[in-house]
Design a protein around this nucleic acid. Structure first.
Length: 100
DNA sequence: GCTCTGACGATTT
DNA sequence: GAAATCGCCAGAG
């Protein structure tokens, strides 16, 4: 595990239940505002489902984004935490957004 | 060291 | 407002 991935996972791990954040926010949090793509790659390579709530990471435009086990699963998990999803978009995104 | 390849993002059509 | 375009950074081969 590289240092970069380590940082990403650590940050994602502190997202509270029922809240979401974005890839961009994570990038900013680790001091690499422009490494958004790399962040996505890092999370994708680590389906540490139990360790890291990677399903709470969405796109900055409020769309759900992708998921290792399919967006279906991702949406399901988010709903189970009380987050509403409509047509692939997170409802009240600005409210439940968690800036790291 | 170079060339792809992305769980992305902002901008421009 | 949807789709195409370009930029960006870290891994993998």
């Amino acid at each position: 595990m590289t240092d970069f991935q380590q940082q990403v996972l650590t940050v994602v791990a502190r997202i509270p239940r029922g809240r979401v954040t974005t890839y961009a926010a994570i990038a900013r949090a680790i001091g690499r505002p422009r490494a958004v793509r790399a962040v996505g790659t890092a999370v994708g390579n680590n389906p540490d489902a139990p360790k890291v709530p990677c399903h709470r990471v969405v796109r900055s435009d409020g769309s759900v984004g992708d998921y290792a086990f399919g967006q279906k699963q991702k949406i399901y998990l988010l709903r189970s935490e009380g987050i509403e999803i409509v047509d692939g978009q997170v409802v009240h995104f600005s409210r439940i957004f968690f800036d790291l």
